[in-house]
């Protein structure tokens, strides 16, 4: 193999010019509270699943809204729907609905 003296790797930048944010818009339509997260992390801190594996509702929602959809796929199948995140959210984000919608839209 020829060594070209450089490697190609995916851009690390979140590029809002090129990222596809259709999913976020669809999500906003179906669940308007997906707009009002203030990223306090209450959901991630209380999450029953997060003590075992990396999963954070805050992160999932943020990434979807940035159009970085692929990076959250694996997190979505870890939710137990126990509802603690909904109960602690100081903004009243309908977390379980968002997770259910994303899961249906992205996986099954």
């Amino acid at each position: 193999m020829i060594n070209w003296q450089f490697t190609l790797h995916p851009d690390h930048t979140i590029n809002l010019d090129t990222n596809d944010r259709t999913l976020a818009r669809l999500l906003e339509e179906k669940e308007p509270t997906s707009r009002i997260c203030m990223a306090c992390g209450s959901c991630g801190g209380t999450c029953t699943a997060a003590q075992f594996e990396p999963v954070s509702f805050r992160h999932i929602l943020l990434m979807v809204r940035r159009g970085e959809t692929e990076s959250v796929r694996s997190e979505l199948t870890k939710c137990m729907y126990c509802g603690k995140c909904t109960l602690v959210c100081p903004r009243g984000v309908n977390t379980r609905h968002i997770l259910a919608l994303l899961r249906t839209m992205l996986i099954n």
């Binding site: 992390g41 801190g45 999450c47 997060a50 954070s56």
Partner: peptide, 29 residues
């Protein structure tokens, strides 16, 4: 630490165990 406290518990020494997400690190703390 940037994260809103999710819950607090008490251990046997009456210390308070706080649970939150360190949102800058992106991990539960």
């Amino acid at each position: 630490i940037r994260g809103r406290l999710s819950e607090a518990a008490e251990d046997i020494d009456q210390r308070i165990i706080v649970k939150l997400e360190d949102t800058l690190a992106g991990r539960p703390l």
